[in-house]
Amino acid sequence: MHLEGYGCAGTTAKAYGLACLELEAADSGLRSLVSVQGSLAMFAIWKWGSEEQKQEWLPRMAAGDAIGCFGLTEPDFGSNPGGMRTRARRDGDDWILTGNKMWITNGSVADVAVVWAQTGDQGDGRGVRGFVVPTDTPGFSAPAIKHKMSLRASVTSELVLDNVRLPASAVLPEAQGLRGPLSCLNEARFGIVFGALGAARDCLETAITYAQERDIFDKPLAGFQLTQAKLADMTLELGKGLLLAAQLGTLKDAGQLKPEQVSLGKLNNVRESLEIARTCRTILGAAGITLEYPIMRHANNLESVLTYEGTSEVHQLIIGQAVTGQAAYR
């Protein structure tokens, strides 16, 4: 909804963020589907693709007639995508892709995959190129990852690329090096800044209602000081997170948002949302671990949100580099 043209709505970034918040109030897995569709797969084609690629895929994806996924993370390379082992080699005018991607949202249901591979042209990730891969291409498969205890409402898959032959037109022409995939991740992280707060809000509203209706020692649980202290602190952190998200949305709409500012928002809002979910669970006691209430489901989901699209530790290092000028990744 935040992209322009090709059947996209062209809304403000802040409006998109608020939509992510409402989606994640239902379930983080639903917001994940939307983030991957719009901010990863579609944004990659919209930002870095050829006009032919945009015309072929974006209108269908905007209408929901085609689903996309984004293949960057590998079994052994998450925080360090520059070390990826997936390779793309030339064969005449074609490219042949070989490798594996892991933890890919929408993978098993996608019609198109944006896959990033090392061409070997340069070191340190500078030879990374993006490829638009129709999922019915021979050699492409996406087995689903099962037995998850988090993001169960979201399809998560491995991508297997077994000598996948692609024409030269499959390359994203404007993306070279890690700048391409990292720009897409920055878009998706922005949605998370808002989205995580939706899960936190749902937990807090549930806990407040429960505390008002649950009697203990002959009065409502909400009437005890320790309960009110928890509710007050959570209300404070949720409000601060909303103000931070709104400010980042204002900066993004003005074209002034920096990647390290997105890291600030993602680190704070997911971390605080997870703490809100855990604290709300204590207010519900044993009832909090059941699916009769949404709190444990949100908490489990937020455990994944905490580490995907940049772990808390990586975002701390991004912020640390911004304030010190020193990179401490190695």
Rank of each mutant, 00 (worst) to 15 (best):
T86Y: 01
L317H: 04
S154E: 13
A9L: 08
I192L: 14
A26Q: 11
S169C: 10
M102S: 07
K240I: 02
G99Q: 09
L151W: 10
W57M: 07
Q53P: 03
L197T: 13
A110V: 08
A327R: 11
P75S: 06
E51I: 05
L248D: 04
G130V: 09
F194Y: 15
H298I: 03
V193N: 08
E303I: 13
H315D: 14
T250D: 13
G285R: 10
T250N: 07
S50H: 03
D162E: 14
F217G: 05
A25Q: 09
K146M: 04
A41M: 01
A175T: 09
V160S: 09
T137L: 12
G195F: 06
F190I: 05
Q53I: 08
G68F: 03
A117P: 06
P75W: 06
L178T: 02
F140G: 06
S50I: 03
K266M: 02
L267V: 07
G139I: 02
A322W: 08
Q321W: 14
Y16D: 03
V112A: 05
A277H: 04
L182Y: 04
A232F: 06
P173N: 14
V133P: 03
E74V: 12
P138M: 03
G223S: 10
L231N: 06
G5V: 08
T137M: 13
C203Y: 04
D215G: 00
M84K: 05
